[in-house]
Write a protein that binds this DNA or RNA. Structure first.
Length: 346
DNA sequence: AGGATTTGACCCAC
DNA sequence: GTGGGTCAAATCCT
């Protein structure tokens, strides 16, 4: 999507981003006409939360006072001026200048765990990628791999991504996405869907989920504090969850409704990890993660056999007005673990 | 055999 | 000239 280029526009970018989310959810809501009520309900919830987030930003809460410089982990760039973190180790200011500026737009960077993705690759993100290059990067301990969408030729999908193992923690990968998927390929989750119902919703949700990818480019100036070298921001698309072994994968798919569980930090309220501090701090990364999680849950829900969802009643989600908590009634569940922003320094 | 990956060469922004 | 990104032939895998 059209991320505002440049750094200074951190909040503006988030507003833009969230506005887009809002639009997508609107569409989703329309598409879900004949789908399980839960999906619709969740879509409405996401919509409400998105609006709330935008409201918070606009009301001036969008600024976190300080941050621990530990963020160097994900090459969190200096807050000051320039977007453009690329490779990871530097503490020195990055210039916004990189080769091939053409793809600066629509750039998303996330850190993913290797869990569920094998030792040499991060967890599957739900898209089909074809590796087209690998390069040793100056100053980095690990080479950077270049991927493009498998459907680039057949569908003209221009999405690419770069994957590089984090220097400080080989179990983590920095993934930079360029461009958006325009391909219409079926996700794994969609393919395992028994009756093909909700495929429109699935598609929309995938789009939405993709849109919610944590974007550091341009947000860096405002939100990088959230990153730290130790933040295991584990993420993988639920789109493939149905085919992924559920065990311990951070986003592993709950195979049954009983296993549905999402735990997340709450960006819209004081972080429990920050004792004492009670003032609100909106962390755009965190909010996006939360929204992403919610959408993931929604995608998960739509990929479940209707019978199961009906049986279970699907009362797993509780959305608090003040907190974006999504809870499970089951205590022993697979945990959707997003811990990246727990230590958000408020 | 066809598709995916590897890898050295090339291109291009600085 | 340097280094990141891409190309494309060679190789590997299924």
């Amino acid at each position: 999507m059209e991320a505002v280029e440049g750094n200074g526009g951190g909040s503006g970018l988030v507003v833009t981003e969230l506005s887009h989310i809002k639009e997508l959810v609107k569409q989703l809501d329309v598409h879900l006409g004949g789908s399980p009520g839960l999906c619709k309900h969740l879509a409405q919830q996401i919509f409400a939360v998105t609006e709330k987030s935008i409201g918070i930003i606009r009301s001036g809460h969008f600024n976190c006072p300080k941050r621990s410089a530990a963020g160097a982990g994900l090459d969190s760039p200096p807050l000051s001026a320039t977007p453009s973190p690329v490779s990871g180790v530097s503490n020195t200011p990055f210039k916004p200048n990189k080769k091939r500026k053409t793809s600066e737009k629509g750039r998303h960077q996330i850190r993913v765990s290797s869990a569920g993705g094998g030792a040499d690759a991060p967890a599957d993100d739900g898209h089909s990628w074809r590796k087209y290059g690998q390069k040793d990067i100056l100053g980095a301990h690990h080479p950077r791999a270049y991927y493009r969408c498998t459907y680039q030729k057949t569908q003209g999908c221009a999405a690419t991504k770069q994957v590089q193992r984090a220097d400080e923690d080989p179990a983590l990968f920095d993934v930079i996405y360029h461009g958006e998927h325009t391909c219409l390929h079926k996700t794994a989750a969609a393919m395992v869907q028994p009756d093909g119902q909700n495929q429109d919703a699935q598609s929309l949700l995938q789009n939405l989920s993709s849109s919610l990818t944590v974007k550091t480019e341009g947000l860096i100036a405002a939100g990088t504090q959230g990153w730290s070298t130790t933040t295991p921001f584990s993420f993988s698309s639920p789109a493939v969850s149905g085919m992924t072994p559920p065990e311990h994968h951070p986003f592993s798919a709950p195979s049954t409704p009983e296993n549905c569980f999402v735990s997340m930090p709450t960006s819209l309220e004081p972080s429990p990890a920050t004792s004492g501090s009670n003032h609100m701090c909106f962390n755009p990364f965190q909010a996006q993660s939360e929204l992403q999680t919610m959408v993931s849950a929604l995608v998960e829900a739509t990929s479940m056999p209707p019978a199961d969802t009906e049986e279970a009643g699907f009362a797993y989600w509780s959305f608090d007005d003040s907190a974006l908590d999504v809870n499970s009634f089951d205590e022993d569940v697979t945990n959707f673990d997003i811990s990246a922003f727990l230590a958000s320094d408020v």
